[in-house]
Write a protein that binds this DNA or RNA. Structure first.
Lengths: 137, 137
DNA sequence: CTTAATCCGACTCATTAAGTCAAGATTCTC
DNA sequence: GAGAATCTTGACTTAATGAGTCGGATTAAG
């Protein structure tokens, strides 16, 4: 039971994009990777997944890069996890015959985790964060 | 993010022991493995972990086996996960410098999952289960 | 045309989960 | 006491997967 680094990276990237914000100029994969300390070649794949999931827009070619496709308040952690990991939990090899009690239990756990992930938006992450900029005002 | 099969197996074994209940005669690893459809050689290691964590008692030699060391209502899923997997979540490689916002977020998630796991006892699993015995009364 | 990007599949590498094996230790039964 | 049953333990194998890299194709700006 753990957060994959793909997922962590994806969230960092989206947070960075949300933080950066300006609508016109997109951020390059390189810029995000550098700022958020993510292996660039790896990040590229993750950004692609996020794009395919409809969370990002991309512009190819020189001066290209990535932008958010939605408002930060409309992207939840659940969205990110699903986009990047496919599902929040691999179904346990819980063959119903031998242990039906546990099937329900694990499903309940999955639902609780899903709810928890869905209750956190990228915006709420930004809001709750002690903005680093504060110290420079 | 997933429930390890070790963990699933551990829960099945404990549920089986709790279900079986009688204080005197212990259940053998083989009996548990057979009834709950778990690879026996593998289960043996898991039972040992549970024993070391204080959840089970064992009796060696002929007529030996395992029993619960506590009441089913005093064993939570959190206990089992910790005993078997060591921790509920590997700490994400969340280097504080680059993404402090997420560190808090992942910690919160970890706490929510911990709470959820702690709120489920083996007894509650038995209670919520549509007892298979029902059909035989 | 050159440069700066994304796109995307194929690849390597290391870790770990899952499971097996075998030998030792302990206790029961006869 | 002998033999059988059972837990105890560590070493081993294997397969899957997460993490990350590489290189080439595509697209757009200057």
């Amino acid at each position: 039971m753990n957060i994959s680094s793909r997922c962590d990276y994806a969230c960092r990237a989206i947070v960075e994009l949300a933080h950066y914000s300006p609508k016109d100029i997109p951020l390059t994969a390189n810029a995000i990777a550098t700022k958020r300390n993510i292996p660039e070649k790896y990040l590229v794949h993750i950004l692609l997944q996020l794009k395919k999931a409809g969370m990002l827009l991309s512009v190819r070619g020189a001066q290209g890069g990535y932008r958010l496709a939605k408002k930060a308040s409309d992207i939840t952690l659940l969205d990110v996890v699903l986009a990047v990991d496919g599902s929040i939990m691999d179904p346990v090899p819980c063959d119903d015959e031998s242990s039906p009690e546990l099937k329900n239990t694990w499903e309940d756990m999955g639902n609780k985790i899903t709810d928890a992930l869905q209750s956190v938006t990228i915006q709420s992450i930004l809001d709750n964060s002690p903005s680093a900029d504060m110290y420079f005002i």
